[in-house]
Design a protein around this nucleic acid. Structure first.
Length: 268
DNA sequence: ACACTAACCTGCAAGC
DNA sequence: TGCTTGCAGGTTAGTG
């Protein structure tokens, strides 16, 4: 579910539905997420008003009158906002109640995380690299930060200490668009090719965000998942299918314990 | 400082 | 039908 575009979409959906709403009750149905949700979170959140919402990497930040609620969706986390008497679903772990609505954090694999923070000076946030859609991800950023890196370029662009938000799908897609073999060592790629890669990362993420906007709304209607950008995918999930560019076969390999999809002909 | 692995967990699809 | 295997959009702590 969540790469940067979905997190951004979720954040925007929350802002639309919950801005300036006051929490009337906090319910923790299962605290055992990536890190155990601290019981004191109830005390900190109760009767607070959600003022605005922001995003840092794949973390959603709820800006409260006092402090912050920080949520990461992990691999399978979803947030939806439903009517207060909608029946509970399996894997609804954390709920915030409002006047007529409930926000539900649902996460089958429980790799997500939820924290209350007094300030944003937190080690999980402090270790994050630049935002790919901001100016700090400038044209020479990847080149400059890769000179001492012997790892493969895919692992490099997925490293959140370098740049945030590039998950497995968008790493594969942007490397394809840039015509770069994912196995290439990060320090062996020219400045020009990195500029091209950076531009494609921005383009792919941007496009996916624009195609988004369904996450929260779609949820309450049917059980169907959006899959709105699946048609846009050039290589991800297309093992043994034909490359749109050269008509060759798309390969799948394992890199750093994850599947990498790429075209051996187009990506050198 | 860097590169790489194991681990956290459930669900689903494919193969036998 | 049921069992087993592999795979899934993330990220940290720990190791060498």
């Amino acid at each position: 579910m969540p790469e940067l575009p979905e997190v951004e979409t979720t954040k925007n959906g929350l802002a639309k539905l919950l801005a300036n709403k006051t929490i009337t009750k906090v319910e923790i149905r299962n605290p055992n997420l990536r890190w155990r949700v601290d019981d004191s979170i109830q005390f900190h959140l109760n009767y607070q008003t959600l003022r605005s919402f922001s995003r840092r990497g794949k973390y959603i930040i709820f800006n409260l009158d006092k402090g912050y609620l920080m949520i990461h969706l992990g691999m399978s986390g979803k947030i939806n906002v439903v009517d207060i008497n909608e029946p509970i679903k399996k894997h609804d772990h954390f709920l915030l109640y409002f006047d007529k609505k409930v926000m539900r954090f649902n996460d089958p694999r429980r790799f997500g995380s939820i924290f209350y923070l007094k300030s944003l000076d937190h080690k999980l946030l402090n270790s994050l690299g630049v935002e790919p859609l901001e100016d700090s991800f400038h044209k020479n950023y990847l080149f400059e930060n890769s000179r001492n890196k012997t790892q493969n370029v895919k692992a490099f662009i997925m490293d959140s200490k370098i740049v945030v938000g590039v998950g497995n799908i968008y790493a594969c897609e942007s490397l394809f668009k840039a015509g770069i073999n994912p196995k290439t060592k990060a320090n062996k790629i020219s400045k020009q090719r990195y500029i091209n890669l950076r531009n494609n990362i921005k383009k792919v993420l941007d496009k996916a965000i624009k195609a988004g906007g369904t996450t929260l709304q779609d949820f309450s209607q049917v059980n169907g998942k959006p899959g709105y950008f699946s048609q846009e995918l050039s290589v991800y999930g297309r093992e043994n299918e034909n490359c749109f560019n050269c008509n060759g076969k798309i390969s799948r390999i394992i890199q750093n314990q994850r599947s990498t999809f790429y075209c051996t002909k187009c990506q050198k």
